[in-house]
Design a protein around this nucleic acid. Structure first.
Length: 827
RNA sequence: GCCGGCGUGUCGGAAUUGGCAGACGAGGCAGACUCAAAAUCUGUUGGCGGCAACGUCGUAUGGGUUCAAGUCCCAUCGCCGGCACCA
């Protein structure tokens, strides 16, 4: 709240329209006054202090990039969920680490700046200020002393430092190769940033461009990134997406000698059991041997094919349709049976997976089958499907199940067994080896854009690539007039001669700086480590604090980062663990993905669609507490939900009614009846178990249900103080302002957050009797109230009595489930 | 194409994991208060039949298991998400 004038709490009329009846009540629910009062109070008396004795709990939001559009109600939801969880942990007596910061480098920020015609440094700072103000409206318990900003030199010093460490360990290397290039963003992209052949950011078709790039050897961690998924309490969906992305497969490399040449072609296969069925080979057009294998007759066609393939965009190449290819004129020898197999080129073989060459078994692979059919190549079946050899195959049989045929000494073996054993058998025979492969590729880490961390490397003609010495970090991003992307494959930084030209830190000769910048993921891959020691000038994070406060216990954010940010962060964490900066190798113990909030009909909120709902007006009209509750009530937190403004009325009414319930009963000194005691314990039980299960929408409906019940009780005698207090405590993480206010009204000086989370007494919850449904043949015909431990005979008799003359025919079976149901089966 | 997830009133969604389907809320309808509206409060609100007690149908569709199915099994349809020539 920006206002410093605090309205009088007894003020009769809030901004919300108020009736004469309501105005005549003792004190109306004035959300504005209450919320302002408690914001001020919390800023003066913090409720989450680290007294050094409590156990820590680290609850983290995925930090936002400061967009110019501000927050909408969808962003709010994630932050509300994490704050509810943080406050709950607070009331379980943890010291809660709940920080917030800004992922401010990268394309979105830069593109926005270009669009607005401002310098990204300026527009980013403005946007941060604006969004920070909006985020503060949530009234989360963020510790702003921990705030980080990836564009702050004191922060990106360490982003650069990590890069230097990786370089020194050989994990950052330069390579010239065709990489994914977005012609619209005018920069190279990582594999993870290409979605269906399009740029993840802007949706433009991605092309290939040959560029010298910095790469990070994430593949070196492929195995650990895969196997350590088992350690994590993450949604199965996300784990599966990561494991698919890493894509480990088991198989063999087999060397096929080339007829008339010394060397051979190495292929990778996961189906060595089908080796006898390999009737031809295909190399990727980019394969090193491609040109060499052409004969005088085929040379022109081969070169033309290679040239044409190089022109194709990755989208064209993906959109399979017809297989294309060209025969090289050369033959390889199947090492197992000496058969002569023609060598072809085709762009359906990927250059950068396996060895870039495959053996083709058309009888048992769909793609090879299509290729063989198109070019009239022989098809040899080597696995009998359902025990039979087919006359003429109409499609490939791709399963590894069946008896081997046409396979020399392997005939009669079971295909699945052979598949497992073949790699070792091949290795023994000396023409190949057992091996594994990954879909995961090394991470293209250079961006030809301005708004990112400069890569701290100096290129020296004699010493090669030399890292900027640690004492010279941070290497500042130079100020520049023209920060627009050049599109030439060079970064805008290349145009600043005074910055580019420098001397080699090793030999002192004149040298040039690396001009590419880091991708937007660089800062976000480790920022969560920095929060707990954000002002440390001597280390990325002090070891003592790291040991005490890390890793993250609960990470909350959208599912869109399942393979980008979350994979990169795991990689960085493992690396930093390996070099001894930290002592753990998984950053996020538990992950929760909240669903998206959409507009009507599930349409994503966007400015261009005009369906963006801003939280600001809703906070003004209904208050922060109401919006917090409604964000949760709108639907299960893990699913997408359609936003409907009207629904917030419901939670507002609930809060008002609860407010009046407490105000009317607080001084009544109503007695704690057995029934009230039962209600209270059930309330605590229900709210706690639903909260633990992250079923936050039903927590809110639970509050409403119990509130309705208590209003009823209030009319018939009143509600005791203990029950009111328990309710207020349970409500506190969800609607903190009203809870503090009512806690005070109930006569407490200290904050409600200094209370421990209420506990329930299972015995007090138990009902002595229960209403059971009485069914005939599974259809409910009556109900009967029975003591909880009623014996079967008695229960059946009472059930029959309740049924009266509805029960006809002969009873053939009687079922009694105590506390649940009586079912009489009659004929 | 492959792999996941989902399908419940007018709408958002509940359902103790096999035990009274539709909690809670929105919206609608009716009433109280009001000159009137808003707000508030009360009642009502799945379909069909009936004045009614009640009957009957009903959780995408078709089948199955069970005393009992929204929940389990099989098949089909539809929607959403991920991967997509990875050999």
């Amino acid at each position: 709240m920006k206002n410093d004038v605090l309205p009088d709490l007894t003020e009769r009329y809030s901004d919300k329209k108020i009736s004469r009846e309501e105005a005549s009540m003792a004190v109306p629910y004035n959300h504005r006054a209450i919320e302002q009062k408690w914001r001020k109070n919390w800023s003066e008396h913090p409720i989450n202090e680290n007294d050094g004795t409590k156990e820590k709990y680290y609850c983290l939001d995925m930090f936002p990039y400061p967009s110019g559009n501000g927050l909408h109600v969808g962003h709010w939801r994630g932050y509300v969920i994490s704050d509810v969880w943080s406050r709950y942990k607070l009331m379980q007596n943890y010291y809660v680490i709940h920080p917030m910061g800004w992922d401010a480098f990268g394309l979105p920020a830069e593109n926005y700046a270009i669009k607005m015609g401002t310098h990204p440094a300026k527009s980013t700072a403005e946007n941060v200020a604006k969004i920070k103000e909006q985020i503060q409206e949530i009234a989360a318990i963020y510790d702003w002393d921990m705030e980080v900003n990836t564009t702050d030199p004191a922060f990106y010093k360490w982003t650069q430092w990590i890069f230097v460490q990786m370089f020194q360990k050989g994990l950052a290397y330069e390579k010239e190769m065709p990489i994914n290039w977005c012609p619209s963003c005018k920069t190279g992209l990582a594999n993870e940033e290409v979605v269906n052949g399009k740029c993840e950011r802007c949706g433009a078709d991605v092309t290939k461009k040959n560029l010298k790039q910095w790469m990070l050897k994430i593949t070196e961690y492929a195995d650990r990134l895969l196997s350590d998924l088992d350690k994590l309490d993450w949604p199965e969906k996300v784990k599966k997406m990561q494991s698919d992305w890493i894509g480990k497969s088991h198989g063999a490399e087999v060397v096929f000698p080339i007829e008339g040449k010394e060397e051979g072609i190495t292929v990778y296969t996961t189906r060595p059991d089908t080796l006898y069925g390999a009737t031809f080979m295909v190399l990727a057009p980019e394969h090193a041997l491609a040109k060499e294998l052409a004969t005088d007759d085929t040379r022109a066609a081969v070169e033309e094919y290679i040239y044409q393939s190089s022109l194709k965009s990755s989208v064209d190449r993906l959109q399979d349709k017809e297989k294309t290819g060209v025969f090289t004129g050369s033959y390889a020898i199947n090492p197992l049976n000496g058969a002569k197999t023609p060598i072809w080129l085709s762009d359906y073989v990927l250059a950068d997976y396996g060895t870039g060459a495959i053996m083709c078994v058309p009888a048992h692979d769909d793609r090879d089958f299509a290729f063989a059919k198109k070019f009239g190549l022989p098809i040899v079946q080597v696995i009998a499907k359902d025990g039979v050899e087919m006359e003429d195959m109409t499609e490939a049989y791709t399963e590894a199940a069946g008896t081997m045929i046409n396979s020399g000494e392997w005939n009669g073996m079971e295909s699945s067994e052979l598949k497992a054993k073949a790699p070792e058998m091949i290795e023994k025979k000396g023409f190949g080896r057992k091996t594994t492969n990954y879909k995961l590729r090394d991470w293209v880490f250079s961006r030809q854009r301005y708004w990112g961390e400069p890569i701290p490397i100096i290129h020296c003609p004699t010493c090669g690539a030399v890292p900027v010495p640690e004492e010279e970090l941070p290497l500042l991003l130079p100020d520049v007039d023209s920060y627009q992307p050049t599109g030439t494959g060079e970064s805008p930084l290349a145009g600043i001669a005074s910055w580019v030209n420098t001397t080699c830190p090793k030999c002192g000769a004149s040298a040039k700086r690396e001009t590419n910048t880091m991708p937007q993921w660089a800062g976000s891959s480790w920022y969560f480590l920095r929060y707990v020691d954000s002002k440390n000038e001597n280390a990325l994070v002090g070891r003592e604090k790291a040991d005490k406060y890390l890793p993250v216990d609960m990470y909350i954010g959208g599912v869109e980062h399942a393979v980008l940010h979350l994979l990169y962060s795991r990689f960085y964490t493992k690396f930093l663990c390996d070099i001894g900066v930290i002592d753990f190798d998984e950053p996020f113990q538990k992950l929760f993905n909240q669903g998206m909030i959409t507009g009507k009909n599930g349409i994503k909120m966007s400015k261009s669609k005009g369906n963006v709902v801003s939280p600001d007006d809703l906070v003004r009209e209904y208050g922060c507490d109401s919006l917090r509750l409604y964000e949760l009530f709108v639907g299960p937190p893990e699913l997408d939900s359609e936003w409907d403004d009207r629904g917030i009325e419901g939670v507002y009414r609930f809060i008002s009614r609860f407010f009046h319930l407490v105000m009317e009963n607080k001084d009544k000194a109503a007695e704690e009846t057995k029934e009230l005691k039962k209600i209270r314990n059930k309330l605590i039980y229900d709210i706690t178990t639903r909260l633990e299960g992250f079923s936050l929408n039903t927590v809110v409906s639970g509050f409403m249900e119990y509130n309705n019940k208590l209003i009823e009780m209030s009319r018939n005698g009143g509600v005791d103080r203990q029950t009111l207090e328990a309710f207020v405590q349970l409500l506190a993480p969800f609607a903190p302002h009203i809870s503090e206010e009512l806690w005070q009204e109930l006569g407490h000086d200290a904050s409600v957050f200094s209370e421990s989370w209420p506990v329930y007494d299972p015995k007090a919850m138990e009902d002595d009797e229960a209403e059971l449904a009485v069914q005939i043949n599974g259809k409910t015909k009556a109900t009967v109230t029975l003591p909880k431990d009623c014996a079967k005979e008695e229960a059946i008799a009472r059930g029959k009595e309740a049924l009266g003359d509805k029960l006809k025919g002969t009873v053939i079976r009687e079922i009694y489930v105590p506390g649940r149901i009586i079912n009489i089966v009659a004929k």
